[in-house]
Design a protein around this nucleic acid. Structure first.
Lengths: 250, 250
DNA sequence: ATTGGCACAATGGTCCAACCAATTTAGGTG
DNA sequence: CACCTAAATTGGTTGGACCATTGTGCCAAT
């Protein structure tokens, strides 16, 4: 089985100033024990400390920003967004994204495979503390649901995120988040589907129960039911859309 | 469920300068019909044309470079490395310290979820022509296997690729290929495992048979068995590695 | 005419110094 | 104490300059 892109040239190419800066910065981050959310030194400080120009520091930080490792806020500072080590492996992946029904369905197919697997691993590996944390997110989501009589995007995502992270595999979060963004980029206002996501509500608790009982197969089943409701919503939205365009033609 | 990264603001308030530059540049690339390998205008020309400073252009190009869309050669120019369209999703995958056993295992967990799902969809959707094509790849792989008494990377990948493509979802191919690349970047010479991949051989045919019979569940089962053999190989390699380091300590 | 080397131009990489824009902070005012 | 305002802080942008590498084309020697 072959490497898709030549993997052998990359390491040779490792010269250039910003690479050195990035390595030094990675060492600093690990050395200072900085964690996600913490603030990095200012660009001016880094520039002076590394004996390079601020431009070079900025170029290096831009690269980290593009990889999602860091977030910059004008007037505030640069903040760590993910754990950073010197020997990280980066693989940028560009995906074609369409706004047609099929493309949206494709993102759900990926999520179906990954969310089910993540649920399995989560149920297998969750500690008591993990389960308590997930339950906390679940309860919060349920509260907001009853307040507004509808799904809340943020709280719902927090719950799923807790599940993904408990799986112990950071790739789940990264890939599913991308699928998620792809989906919502063209589905911000679900056409004709007022209660989008509503049907998925009960399966959050059943999923949690399966995880809490360390039942991988059960967790898998509930995760699949959950994603199936989203697929249904999408299909309904697509049907509505067709109906509307048909009407407008008449 | 919420956008992880705000998907709604990005297109609207194009505030950051370099985003605007990248969009304009993407339009230019598609407009001019540039293909991978072609040279882009120089930074100075772009800066003047877009009415921004060269620094801003450089920052934008740095981002594309980090995503692998572009390659810069000092003294020569900036060259397109991949097809670029305006609305594509960039997914930078990051593994913390990608050369340890756990990280390699993470890539296999993703593959487990996706390859199983792809096998299901493939079995559901394969036309007769698709199945004939897959069988052709299978036979070719088996031939090479018997010639060399071992798995051949290229032919094996061709077979899997045929399966992924038949699933009708291009995301499978790209994401799994990325997992592949990540895996092999640090596993080019499987430590102490001479017959790496050997055990997976028989499951290629059983997988094909299930697909040919339009048996989604069967295809899923065989795909899982196949990936399980790879996981075994990895575990064996890890065990060997531990043994060696233990010996070297003595 | 071919080949080799050399100077020059083009291009990305780095640096500097200043200013702009958003944010935070500190102080003052009610 | 709460609120507002002004100053300091910080990332974002600009222009110009120079360095390092590469590509090009001319010219001389063979």
């Amino acid at each position: 089985m072959p490497p898709v892109v030549s993997p052998i040239l990359a390491p040779v190419h490792t010269s250039s100033r910003d690479d050195a800066v990035l390595n030094a910065l990675a060492d600093f981050v690990t050395g200072a024990g900085l964690k996600p959310g913490d603030r990095l030194p200012t660009e001016r400080v880094l520039a002076e400390h590394f004996k390079v120009s601020r431009t070079t520091v900025r170029e290096a930080l831009t690269r980290w920003q593009e990889l999602g490792l860091v977030e910059r806020r004008q007037g505030s500072g640069t903040y760590l967004k993910a754990a950073v080590t010197r020997n990280m492996l980066h693989l940028p992946l560009t995906l074609p994204s369409g706004n047609d029904f099929n493309s949206l369905m494709h993102t759900l197919e990926i999520r179906r495979g990954l969310e089910a697997e993540a649920a399995v691993l989560c149920a297998e590996r969750a500690s008591d503390a993990d389960i308590a944390f997930i339950e906390q997110k679940l309860i919060r989501m349920e509260e907001v649901f009853h307040e507004r009589s509808g799904m809340s995007a943020d709280e719902d995502w927090d719950f799923h995120l807790a599940v993904f992270r408990t799986s112990g595999n950071p790739l789940f979060e990264q890939i599913i988040a991308a699928m998620y963004e792809m989906f919502h980029r063209f589905w911000e206002h679900p056409l004709g589907v007022r209660d989008f996501g509503h049907a998925s509500f009960p399966y959050h608790r059943t999923l949690f129960n399966a995880i809490a009982e360390r039942d991988p197969l059960g967790a898998r089943a509930e995760a699949l039911k959950l994603i199936a409701t989203v697929e249904d919503d999408l299909k309904r939205g697509n049907a509505n859309l067709k109906k509307q365009t048909k009407k407008s033609k008449e």
